[in-house]
């Protein structure tokens, strides 16, 4: 129920209505719950309403952290070496 999908804003019409692209599918979105939505912003859409904007800087930080984890794995002894 609280499933929210990340989608990219592709159309802004009047009355806070517009469209977003989710994995190639155009979905109708109501933007009334957000301020200053712009084309190409990433938003989280839930039950037809955009409920949050995606903060790209924060997203980039998380991904960088995860890449570090992937590198950290390479520094661990492999399963074979352990045996």
């Amino acid at each position: 129920m609280c499933l929210g999908i990340p989608a990219k804003v592709i159309e802004l019409a009047g009355h806070n209505r517009g469209k977003a692209d989710y994995l190639g599918t155009k979905i109708q979105v109501d933007f009334s719950l957000l301020e200053n939505v712009n084309l190409n912003d990433w938003v989280i859409v839930h039950a037809g309403f955009a409920i949050a904007k995606l903060n790209e800087e924060e997203a980039a930080e998380t991904f960088e952290l995860l890449r570090e984890y992937a590198r950290f794995l390479e520094t661990l002894p492999s399963e074979k070496e352990k045996k």
């Binding site: 990340p6 997203a59 991904f63 995860l66 890449r67 984890y69 992937a70 794995l73």
Partner: peptide, 17 residues
């Protein structure tokens, strides 16, 4: 966002845990 499901990442996170 594929990092979020990357096998290596998941593996190393589980090891960390």
């Amino acid at each position: 966002m594929k990092e979020l499901r990357d096998r290596e990442v998941i593996h190393s996170l589980l090891k960390t845990i």
